[in-house]
Design a protein around this nucleic acid. Structure first.
Lengths: 182, 182
DNA sequence: ATTATATGATAACATACGATATGTATTATT
DNA sequence: AATAATACATATCGTATGTTATCATATAAT
């Protein structure tokens, strides 16, 4: 009875998501997404009630993107929080616009930094438990200090004020953990 | 011979600058500035060649605003960098949009974080010298570590992930300096 | 083959933006 | 008072945005 769908929700969402990588979250407009997807603006508003809905979908997809990014990069932890931190900083360097969207801008109704970090795998909890098992007296306070430091480095990569290699970053984080342990 | 000026550059700049406080840098548009200043858009483009010029003037004024803010809040340093850091974090909490403009967004052709911090008074250099005089072996590395930490706390106040009192912040910064000294 | 209907392209509407042309108001000089 | 020069308001242009109405079309069910 009905005409076959030729522009799917996946195509629209993927297109919008890709546009964020280079152009940032603000670069998503109905016309630009349509042009890049090779269609008119009509299918966008068929699938999504309005642009807010599409933006929210892109935000959610960015969350999964980060969690996948972390999963792929995660190695067995040597010093607690250093691996999570290294990945976080690398993500800020390599995926600036997604990092901004998730951890800097503070989207309306978005998830908190802790919720994002902990994810579905309980990453933060795991690291906190690791710290405890290694004799850290107050793993929660340790996480706070380490994360302030890690987030600072990540944000400074955005403005070009932090530019260390992964090896240097690892060394810096391990030394910091040691310092905060005293 | 000529008509008297009733809309001055100061009025326009002050209006635009005030608008940033609540609405952010992006809220500055020719029409909104004009409405708030009680004039048409014409005087804006008489004084400034285009909106880019006005934005740049607002950016410069924001720099002076930060430097004045720091000057007013600066106390004799106890532990190096803690006072500068406390003020920086307080500025992020109380003047979110100016903080974003100066230290997060990275304006085209804008000053680097270090340039802004050091300002006309050489604030950073003073703190580095203080650290050296107190026996710090590598004051430059100490500044880097301390500032990554301080910037992290400041950025986390923007998203509500850091919410300590000034007293707690001072204590945290002093302990961090001590930790990094080991 | 016909028909019903969702799909999507075209075009348009309403709004907001930077920027500018034009006419009017105002002021100092003559 | 007349004149010239500048400032300002009004109106407008061109563009970009979200959103929607119209309509041709493809396609599955009959």
């Amino acid at each position: 009875m009905a005409r076959k769908e030729s522009v799917t929700e996946q195509m629209i969402l993927d297109t919008a998501f890709e546009m964020v990588k280079e152009g940032g979250f603000e670069s998503i407009t109905a016309r630009k997404v349509a042009e890049r997807a090779g269609c008119s603006t009509q299918p966008i508003f068929r699938v999504y009630k309005n642009m807010d809905e599409l933006q929210h979908a892109v935000y959610e997809k960015s969350i999964h993107f980060f969690l996948d990014y972390y999963k792929a990069a995660s190695k067995p932890s040597s010093v607690p929080f250093t691996n999570l931190g290294l990945t976080y900083i690398a993500f800020a360097r390599e995926e600036k616009n997604y990092f901004k969207l998730l951890f800097v801008k503070g989207v309306k109704g978005g998830k908190s930094m802790y919720e994002l970090l902990n994810g579905t795998e309980g990453n933060v909890v795991k690291e906190i438990n690791l710290a405890r098992s290694r004799g850290c007296a107050d793993p929660g306070a340790m996480f706070m200090k380490m994360w302030i430091f890690i987030h600072g480095a990540a944000c400074m990569t955005l403005t070009g004020d932090y530019d260390l290699t992964d090896e240097e970053t690892i060394s810096l984080l391990e030394k910091s953990y040691e310092s905060f342990s005293q």
